[in-house]
Structures are given as structure tokens and as C-alpha cells.
Design a protein around this nucleic acid. Sequence first.
DNA 1: TTAATACCTACTAAATTACTAGGTTATTAA
DNA 2: TTAATAACCTAGTAATTTAGTAGGTATTAA
Lengths: 132, 132
Amino acid sequence: MLFTTKTEYGLKAMTALAQSKDKKPLSLASIAKDYHISQPYLERLFAKLKADGLVESSKGSNGGYVLTRPANKINIFEVIEALEGPLAVFYCMASDGKPACTTSNCLTKKVWHELQKNIMVTLRRFKLSDLI
Amino acid sequence: MLFTTKTEYGLKAMTALAQSKDKKPLSLASIAKDYHISQPYLERLFAKLKADGLVESSKGSNGGYVLTRPANKINIFEVIEALEGPLAVFYCMASDGKPACTTSNCLTKKVWHELQKNIMVTLRRFKLSDLI
DNA sequence: TTAATACCTACTAAATTACTAGGTTATTAA
DNA sequence: TTAATAACCTAGTAATTTAGTAGGTATTAA
């Protein structure tokens, strides 16, 4: 399985924000209820979405989250990367702190690189608005 | 992470078979030693590869595994699917026994379907011989 | 001042991956 | 015929990740 419920829940919630009347902030409590998702779990996902600048929050009564950009300007890849971390088809392809493959001139790596690029391009083509 | 060490180990071992002199069977003991992989774990991977008809086995002294086809006729997708099971970018996309998405006319699903098709096409383009 | 909301920390449960241990069965070479 | 080799099988354990729970604090609007 490529993606987990993190992405599934996150995208569902993001589409909910995209459909909010007059860009009114939506509380996680209401989203959690509407989509039957654990609220604390959703909170952690939104912390990541906010850290990556995809949503803005406001506290207090009538507070909640709103998208920072129109839904047709947010691509699926951004959302996935925010939630799942950097895309890596393999351990050896990880771009974060993990130990990378040390085989010089590694043919296998070239194949994974091409696959990874391909997946990214495909995911970037789709916008949040395509899911509504 | 898309793929696990199952695929990593499996592909490494398959390329070892592809490079065997005169198509001589290679034992899992020797592959496990050469590539520093747990032999019983490798055994289970090869059970899957054999079940999918990608390798043949012979028991006894000088026995081992050989490829059933030339390396340029075996594509990466076949190997991955044998080892990791049916490709599904999401739970809702699983083609096996699991409960599928019931949302009729689900837009999200169309996006995943296109992504999934794309990944398959890319993986089928690469042959085992490309990794040698 | 109160209620609503984001935000934070620590823990538990479930699932999956990776690995270990200890066999049995079939085949070949000596 | 025997011993070595190798596939093949079963039942576990360890490690990691995902998913979810519990119980708070901080901030803001009404």
C-alpha cells in the first residue's frame, strides 16, 4: 500500500475546508464528527498541514481551519508530502536524514529515481479541486 | 515508503540468478551469504517468486533456483507484485478480498486509479536486465 | 467570564515487517 | 547406500509503524 489513512483523512478534511461556505473556518470537532475520524488524530495531521503552510488556524469560538490557497492551486502531492513525509519508493531513496545507498553508479537507483519522478509528476497534476 | 525490503532483497537475488554462469542454479544459502540477507526470510520470498512462476527450483546437491525467462523478459512489476502483493495506492483501491470503497461515482478513486495505472506502466517498462 | 477552539504530551492498541529457530523432504555425489 | 546439500515447511519473536486514546493547557470570540 502506497499511502495510509493519514493521506486519506487529510485529503478528506481538506476537501471539507474547500467546500466551506464563504471560507468560514471549520473546526476539527465538526470534521471529525462528519467524517468519523478520531479528533486527536486529525489534530496531529493538521499540525503537519499547518507547518507546511497549506492551512491557517484561528482559535476561540467560531475558530477553526481554512485553506491558505484556492483548492485549484493546491496539488495532491503537497498534501501527501506534508502528511506522509518525503516520498521515497525505497529506503535507499530517502532524502531525509536516513543513511542513503552508497553504491556508486547504482543502476537500480536510476530506475527508482525515474519511478519516483513519475509519481511526483502525476500527483502534482491533480489539484485538491479535482477531488470535489 | 512505497516498497519494502521484500522487493529490495527479491530484486537483488533475482539479479544474482540473472548473472549466474551458464544458468547454473544458485542456492539461497550462497545468495543469503553474498548479500547479507537472512536465509529463512529469503526462502519465504522465493516461495512467492516460485508461486508466480518467475523462478524454478531444484533440490539436492548443486540444486538451487534459476530464472524461468531471460532477464530482459522479466519486468520489475511482476517481481514486485509477487513479493508485495497486488499494488494498491490505497486501502479503497485493493483488488483482493478487502472491503472496497462504496462511494458511487467517487472522484478521489479516479485520481488514484490514474496514479496506480501510471505506476504500473512505469514499472512494467523496466526489466530485470536493466538492473544489471 | 465563559465557551469554543486550537494546541500539546504521553500513553496504548493494532498491524505489518523483519527476523529466528528448528525442523522435514527430495536429490545428488561419493 | 550413505552423507551432504538444498528446497521446503511451521511456529514463533522483535522491531517498527500506524492508528487511536486520554487528559490536559493556551488563546480567542461572544
